[in-house]
Design a protein around this nucleic acid. Structure first.
Lengths: 215, 215
DNA sequence: TCCTTTACTTAACGATGTTAAATTAACGTT
DNA sequence: AACGTTAATTTAACATCGTTAAGTAAAGGA
């Protein structure tokens, strides 16, 4: 039934209806395996209707990722209230991995799928907003640990440190998501791999005299 | 021109002709973007001929990955002759990253693309062969470093250590390959990220009294 | 000479992302 | 109150994809 006028709010509502249906399908069966027709059927519209709200499948994926980036930042928000900066940094890594492993297909969409690079100018999220930008959360915590003098003296580049921490956690999570079923490798428990990575990372980054108290 | 008899050698030759053509295309434009018809045209056959040599696109991809896994192991082979085990381990990480960043699309195919898990029984490569199995190379070196007593005393599980080292290097490389163009993050130089990761990793894994000599 | 087998090609199928052409209903104007 | 305009949606259609079925041509054996 195609009637006529649609307020901005109604348009937005249908937009998020599409996003939610698409995410659910993408997440349960992978982006490539899900068809536009299927997404549409799920919400009782025809496939072409989706193109009235998103330019193409890629744009839809982008919009979904945006809401997932927000979900990640939201799920990490509480951790930022931990008092001790080093503990905070440790917990942030743990929370990140928890999100990745609890939502592997979200994570795959966000960080492992080839897609046109994300431009902050076109995103619905605010960069450098502690409520919305998980990378900013990490960078902030790293800066605080640095300011409190916990890092080894030769570590001074906050961005570089943050990106290395990210790479540590991403390495464990993405290998787990993509290769855990691979029979070539006799995988250790994922929790043991995560814990060792955190230990190695902390030992590698922090001054020795802090370590015994903190880990 | 469809004549008749084809020796085993000739069949094998055409097989590798397909593999080479497919790899070149996959690597230059990504697996999903390349069509079977295009691969076939490249070698002057019709698309359906490929199916006489490979069950489907996935099987072709698998065969390509096999030869790339061999290429990785081969490119790391010389490193194993470095005398000092810790240096050897360090160089292996560096060589791994060098391979990943020199052949990003190979690397993506091998370790970042969703595919049915690799079963050693069906692979053309020999598991636990130092000439063919890069993971075995890593595990061996880790075992040697462990045997020589360089690891911190609480690190005793060789597989777990090897998988953590792999995750460290994979984290840097895969983030670089998938996210380097992303404008959300102000990326540091990849060489700086790699070097810091190696330093953090070594400091995190090795006993303190070895560090000053080795890094 | 003919018939089988082999290597390959052409035709065709169902499905996909996407676009162009209807269709349907509400609104503003007269 | 009738009507044309416009917006929301659908149906048809296109080009292309991976893949399968059906055909074709040539070499070898009888």
């Amino acid at each position: 039934m195609p009637p006529k006028p649609k307020t901005d709010a109604e348009r937005q509502q249908l937009r998020t209806l599409i996003i939610d249906a698409a995410r659910e399908l993408f997440v349960s069966r992978g982006v490539e395996a899900v068809t536009m027709r299927e997404i549409a059927k799920r919400i009782g519209y025809s496939a072409t209707s989706i193109y009235l709200y998103f330019a193409d499948k890629e744009a839809l994926l982008r919009a979904i990722c945006d809401t997932d980036f927000l979900a990640l930042a939201t799920s990490l928000k509480n951790i930022l209230q931990i008092a001790h900066p080093v503990e905070r940094m440790h917990a942030l890594g743990h929370g990140y991995a928890e999100f990745a492993l609890a939502h592997p297909n979200h994570y795959r969409m966000m960080f492992m799928t080839e897609r046109t690079p994300c431009d902050p100018a076109e995103s619905s999220l605010q960069q450098n907003n502690a409520e919305q930008d998980a990378y900013y959360q990490l960078k902030t915590v790293v800066a605080e640990v640095h300011a409190a003098g916990y890092f080894r003296v030769d570590l001074q580049d906050v961005d570089l440190i943050a990106q290395t921490i990210w790479a540590c956690m991403h390495g464990v999570c993405s290998l787990q998501i993509n290769m855990a079923e691979d029979k070539w490798v006799q995988w250790s428990d994922i929790s043991a791999r995560l814990q060792l990575m955190q230990t190695v990372m902390m030992r590698g980054l922090l001054r020795e005299d802090n370590l015994k108290d903190l880990i």
